[in-house]
């Protein structure tokens, strides 16, 4: 603890305490409660007795009947997270470098790339459902030039890839803005020095841009990982809640807890949904912490 220069500590305590109370009451307490209800058979209805069932829900997750389905969801989730994180960061950096130059219309281009972020999942889902309409969407027209056709989101081999594509399309905006910010913070002199040393374009990128962008990279990679591991809305609006080809852990939580009878004929099982939440939390936290530690170390070394 370093010395506090401002005299009375009460203002610090009051405002810090206020923030802490809001976070604890409205975010931490409900999150901890999720852990607790994952050990119960709670349903979404009042007046129904709630029983402690111990590890039953966890056993069910790993039961013979479910394990195949859950492993599939896990596999899809990891593919989704890895591919979209890598692509969003690689493309985001490339576009940011491009749009950081003195080009006419770069402001317009920046705005256009950021648009999907504002439009939201519902609009994005509608646009791409129209676009990949197998009977007469623009994509079908392009396919037909090559004498091919496809069911697109209905094709079990293609569906996950297309959802990832849309996720990348939609997620680039934030990454570009953060990378642009990072790029503009790099002093020009460093590039000039590199020029005088006769560095090639690739060397400039590797030796100047990437190291100085390290904090932006950390922020972007973390945002992309957490976002892709937790988001189910895109898969949901594009391919529905029960498509095995695009089944994600986060989507399974949603349909278990809230899909109820309308989608599967099964009752809502919020205890089980909480169990999947907990398992997902463990996966997300392990993945994010590993990446965070790795990136922080790199930053420190540079």
């Amino acid at each position: 603890m370093s010395t506090y220069p401002f005299g009375a500590r009460s203002p610090l305590r009051i405002t810090f305490g206020f923030g802490l109370v809001v976070l604890v009451v409205f975010a931490i307490v409900p999150a901890v409660a999720v852990f607790l209800i994952s050990f119960t058979d709670i349903r979404g209805l009042p007046g129904i007795p709630v029983n402690w069932v111990g590890l039953d829900n966890y056993e069910r997750f790993f039961s013979a009947a479910r394990i195949g389905y859950n492993v599939n969801a896990l596999k899809n989730t990891l593919i989704y997270a890895v591919v979209s994180t890598v692509a969003i960061n690689a493309l985001g950096l490339a576009i940011a470098v491009l749009l950081n130059q003195k080009l006419r219309g770069k402001t317009f281009a920046r705005a256009v790339v950021f648009l999907p972020t504002i439009l939201g999942v519902t609009v994005i889902g509608l646009i791409w459902s129209l676009f990949f309409n197998p009977s007469a969407g623009p994509a079908a027209t392009v396919w037909s030039w090559f004498g091919a056709d496809s069911a697109f989101f209905g094709d079990p081999n293609l569906a996950l890839g297309l959802v990832i594509f849309v996720q990348i399309w939609a997620g680039l905006g934030v990454a570009v803005v953060i990378y642009l910010a990072g790029l503009q913070a790099i002093p020009e002199e460093l590039y000039e020095a590199a020029d005088i040393d006769g560095a090639s374009g690739g060397q400039r990128l590797r030796l100047v841009t990437v190291p100085l962008l390290a904090p932006s990279i950390t922020a972007n990679v973390l945002l992309a990982i957490v976002g892709s591991l937790q988001s189910y809305q895109l898969a949901y609006v594009l391919t529905g809640p029960n498509n095995p080809a695009t089944q994600l852990l986060s989507l399974a939580i949603f349909s278990q807890a809230f899909g109820g009878s309308s989608t599967s004929g099964l009752g809502q099982s919020q205890g089980y949904a909480a169990t999947i939440s907990v398992i997902q939390f463990i996966i997300v936290s392990v993945a994010s912490l590993l990446v965070l530690i790795y990136l922080r170390r790199r930053e420190a070394r540079l």
């Binding site: 459902s129 990949f132 309409n133 197998p134 009977s135 056709d149 496809s150 069911a151 697109f152 989101f153 209905g154 094709d155 079990p156």
Partner: peptide, 16 residues
Amino acid sequence: AQKNFAGVGYDAIPSG
């Protein structure tokens, strides 16, 4: 069924 029906929405059936 029609080609690529797996990608066709229910809402497109009446018009089809």
